[in-house]
């Protein structure tokens, strides 16, 4: 078990093995009464955000490249409707080169270019 503390939240991470053999983590965000379950499956991470009554409020999905760097991040409502979608184009060291935000209809909302640090 790993405990992290920031200014206004206490994070408890419990790591274990799921019935599918994948690693998963349970995060409890104390100050916001949220509970998060994160599933790690090969090159994908899925996270499920629950309210204090354990009702699913949002779900997210992250796709990693072969080096383990994030290349896409999607979030969905509890009804499985896409809320937004981010695409990352990375430098070889994993730093973001381009970040593009899309809305639920796939319209490009914004794009940012970052110089290599």
């Amino acid at each position: 078990m790993k405990i992290e503390e920031t200014n206004d939240l206490v994070l408890v991470i419990i790591q274990s093995q799921s019935e599918f053999g994948s690693a998963f983590e349970v995060l409890k965000l104390k100050s916001h009464n949220k509970k998060v379950i994160r599933l790690v499956k090969d090159k994908n991470i899925e996270y499920f955000i629950y309210n204090k009554n354990m009702i699913l409020s949002e779900k997210g999905m992250i796709e990693l490249d072969s080096n383990g760097f994030v290349i896409t991040n999607k979030e969905f409502s509890s009804k499985e409707e896409l809320l937004f979608h981010i695409e990352y184009e990375n430098y070889p060291n994993g730093e973001t080169k381009w970040e593009r935000h899309y809305d639920k209809k796939g319209n490009l909302l914004s794009e940012d270019f970052f110089e290599k640090e």
């Binding site: 920031t6 939240l9 965000l29 949220k34 991470i45 955000i49 997210g60």
Partner: peptide, 8 residues
Amino acid sequence: SIISGNPK
């Protein structure tokens, strides 16, 4: 970042 595990 903490919730999603996406540090970006």
